[in-house]
Write a protein that binds this DNA or RNA. Structure first.
Lengths: 134, 134
DNA sequence: TATTACGTTGACGTTAACGTAATAGCAAAG
DNA sequence: CTTTGCTATTACGTTAACGTCAACGTAATA
């Protein structure tokens, strides 16, 4: 019933190498079951992998993700742990929001550059190669 | 008139080490003038540094930024180069937009986790530690 | 039964982005 | 005039995130 995936299936789906997946297991992000010696990944692992890949694309280290997973797994119903997790989550949220601003700023600059290009292409005006003004 | 900065001034402003700045120069991102042997950074360098740091925070490699700078500097008024630059810029823009989606997705997941935590904190319900449903 | 495909575990290699000395020059302050 | 502070260069060290063999087991297939 609950679907399972082989390592190469996941690799294909997420366009990464099997080596990368094994590496994620090495650092504790995944803990697939085994069919004898072969790995079998369930939905939980798939979800974690997905999350890990997203994080990596944002420059978040695997160690940080691992920490979050651990906190989440061990939170249970203990007040202290739950509050600690909440604090962590908020810090990450703030980080993400800052990066969102970074992206917005970069998109702005890129738009500026694109406009410069288009202007140069449109007319052959005099144009100095300089960086965007403050 | 046009302000100049010492290496440590920039380092302080952007909260990085002087070593990092020298490294950025090593890889060709900055090309400060010299007062004898000492570096003097102008506004152009400051702007580039700022951009480089933003990019780094988003996981964009210094090499990629360097490439963009080079393209931009050498574009001049040559149609081919300008169009090449535009193409690069667009690819980066798309990348950034995808990362923006990544952030949105992660923020969503974090919100989900936070809610779980809060629910656990509110009542002491039975609660299984599992990963977010597909 | 030999080939092909996919899986495994080591274990060393690589790249990026700096960190971290070590050593030394110069300039103002005590 | 020496200590303090900033600067410089050279060069080896470090960490993360895999890449890249090597050497092997297993299972379906020609």
């Amino acid at each position: 019933m609950t679907p399972v995936y082989t390592i190469s299936e996941l690799a294909k789906e997420f366009k990464i190498t099997t080596r990368a997946i094994r590496h994620y297991e090495d650092v504790g992000l995944l803990s697939p079951q085994r069919d004898g010696i072969n790995r079998l990944f369930g939905n939980r692992d798939r979800a974690r992998l997905k999350l890990a890949l997203r994080a990596r694309r944002l420059g978040i280290s695997l160690a940080e993700i691992h920490e979050l997973f651990d906190l989440y797994d061990n939170a249970g119903n203990e007040r202290r742990k739950l509050e600690g997790l909440l604090a962590k989550l908020e810090r990450h949220r703030i980080e993400l929001e800052q990066r969102s601003e970074d992206i917005a700023a970069m998109l702005d600059e890129f738009a500026f550059f694109e406009n410069q290009c288009r202007r140069s292409l449109a007319g052959s005006h005099r144009q100095t190669v300089e960086t965007k003004p403050a």
